[in-house]
């Protein structure tokens, strides 16, 4: 993760076991623990976030399609938007991984950094979290356009590392 990420005030720690449940876009209840045994990449997004749109094809083609048969699970988590709006984004980018709806922001609050004047639902947008097969958090990185390239590479590298464990 970036140096900046290490200096943020967070309500979680690397190595911590995490779990949550959210409804997916079809209304099905999905828990992180449903994917125990897989390496999970969770991506927080909104439909109006330009950088999320920029990254959307990469998540499907470079991450999900290349790693789904190797033990990786991608989960996209929308922050505070309607199912109808999120469905438009899913269709637009042909996402075939689960898309979850954090409609009340409770999962967002858990994963967002705490910073005065910065609401969790803004701070969390376009962030990556990677959990290992035991649901332990092993990597996270928030949006930083100076590291947009580096983060894309770091995410793939971390997935490969955890798959090799």
């Amino acid at each position: 993760m970036s140096e900046e990420a290490t200096s943020l005030k967070l309500s979680f720690k690397l190595g911590e076991k995490l779990d949550f449940s959210l409804s997916d876009i079809e209304g099905k209840n999905i828990s992180l623990s449903d994917y125990r045994g897989k390496v999970i990449l969770a991506f927080f997004f909104t439909t109006w976030c330009p950088y999320c749109s920029a990254e959307a094809p990469y998540l499907e083609k470079e991450v999900w399609q290349k790693f789904k048969n190797k033990g990786v699970q991608v989960l996209a988590i929308d922050v505070l938007e309607t199912k109808e709006l999120v469905e438009k984004m899913r269709k637009k980018f042909n996402w075939t991984f689960p898309v979850l709806l954090d409609t009340d922001g409770r999962v967002t609050k858990k994963f967002a950094p705490e910073k005065e004047g910065l609401s969790p639902e803004v701070a969390i947008i376009n962030s990556h979290f990677i959990l290992d097969s035991e649901l332990r958090l092993r990597y996270y990185e928030y949006l930083n356009m100076e590291r947009f390239d580096a983060r894309a590479r770091a995410t793939i590298k971390k997935l490969e590392e955890l798959l090799a464990e």
């Binding site: 909104t46 976030c49 803004v122 376009n126 949006l143 356009m145």
Partner: peptide, 10 residues
């Protein structure tokens, strides 16, 4: 709707 290098603002 605007963004900085580190945030996308509502």
């Amino acid at each position: 709707q605007g963004c900085t290098d580190q945030l996308c603002l509502p």
